[in-house]
């Protein structure tokens, strides 16, 4: 798969504060790429540079084969952006907002009507087209934001914490549509999120901390490298104690032992079959990866 985004040695400072320090990464065409990090880690700064909203201090940004320096206008046609908070005009209707934004990409008249019909169908906007953005629910408003970002059929969709504050059903709907678009149109999705389950579904994850990359890889690679495995044992605590390993009581009769990998888990089970009458082995979660990679806890609501 070819690289659609290449970032090499990117630097950006705000006075004394080094927001982005020499980061390099690549995003492959059609993949779901996740950027993880606490507030101030440098995620939004990187996105803003990619979108031409901020100037970089150094480094190279290449998007869809075009260098950001000197090709900003063309690159902007390849990018669709869903901002963390809706930035559409609240006093105007969904239709007016989409019509204005489409015109800025040169989509007017019949071309706009055709695209609007597609997006209306895709995001179920028919009943809210004439309603002002300010009167929509959080979920409806988010659907419009994503539809607006896809108006010009971009190659890359940048989602800056897109599902924050959404109910699980809307979150599922949004991701369903995006997954479908990725499959059908090879849309690349560049995501920043604090929802671990969203990052866990990504094809590739980059963890940022203080403007630097702390870890990167597929969720499986990261889990293997940073989180290890866990054995959950259901049964007698005395038998768990007898294993001589540190354990955590999850609830009454449920205990969790951390092991470095599956091989260690297998060895432990084979050596102590009497303790493992009812058990399961699970991979570590992205929360564990984040904690191990940065030494910081990434909790849902705080990021």
């Amino acid at each position: 798969m070819e690289d659609i985004i290449r970032i090499e040695h990117l630097h950006k400072s705000y006075g004394e504060v080094k927001a982005v320090q020499d980061i390099s990464f690549r995003v492959r065409k059609g993949e779901l790429f996740a950027f993880l990090g606490l507030n101030g880690a440098g995620k939004s700064t990187t996105i803003s540079i990619m979108c031409g909203q901020l100037r970089k201090d150094g480094g190279m940004v290449e998007i869809n084969g075009k260098n950001l320096d000197g090709n900003q206008e063309e690159i902007k046609r390849d990018l669709g952006v869903v901002f963390q908070n809706s930035v559409l005009d609240k006093a105007l209707s969904v239709y007016d907002n989409l019509e204005t934004r489409a015109a800025l990409y040169g989509i007017t008249g019949k071309a706009f009507k055709t695209r609007l019909a597609e997006l209306t169908e895709l995001f179920d906007l028919k009943d809210i087209l004439k309603r002002p953005i300010g009167k929509l629910s959080g979920g409806q408003s988010r659907r419009v934001d994503v539809a607006r970002a896809l108006l010009h059929q971009p190659k890359i969709l940048i989602l800056d914490e897109p599902t924050t504050g959404l109910d699980p059903q809307t979150r599922k709907t949004v991701w369903g549509i995006l997954d479908d678009l990725r499959k059908r149109e090879e849309l690349t999705v560049f995501l920043t999120t604090h929802y671990m389950e969203e990052a866990a579904d990504a094809d590739y994850v980059v963890i940022l901390d203080n403007g630097k990359i702390s870890a990167e890889g597929t969720p499986l690679q990261l889990k293997n490298e940073y989180a290890g495995d866990f054995i959950t044992i259901y049964g007698d605590e005395e038998k768990v104690k007898a294993l001589g390993k540190d354990y955590e009581t999850v609830s009454a009769g449920v205990y969790r032992i951390a092991v470095t990998d599956t091989a260690e888990a297998t060895a432990l089970i084979l050596q102590n079959p009497e303790a493992f009458t009812d058990y399961e082995i699970v991979k570590g979660k992205m929360d564990d990866v984040f904690l191990a990679a940065t030494g910081k806890k990434l909790t849902g609501g705080e990021v």
């Binding site: 979108c51 031409g52 063309e74 902007k76 901002f83 934004r101 800025l104 990409y105 607006r148």
Partner: peptide, 14 residues
């Protein structure tokens, strides 16, 4: 103030 400007400047419009 509302950052609606960002939604205009991310487009290729001059």
């Amino acid at each position: 103030v509302t950052k609606a400007r960002n939604d205009l400047t991310i487009t290729p419009v001059k």
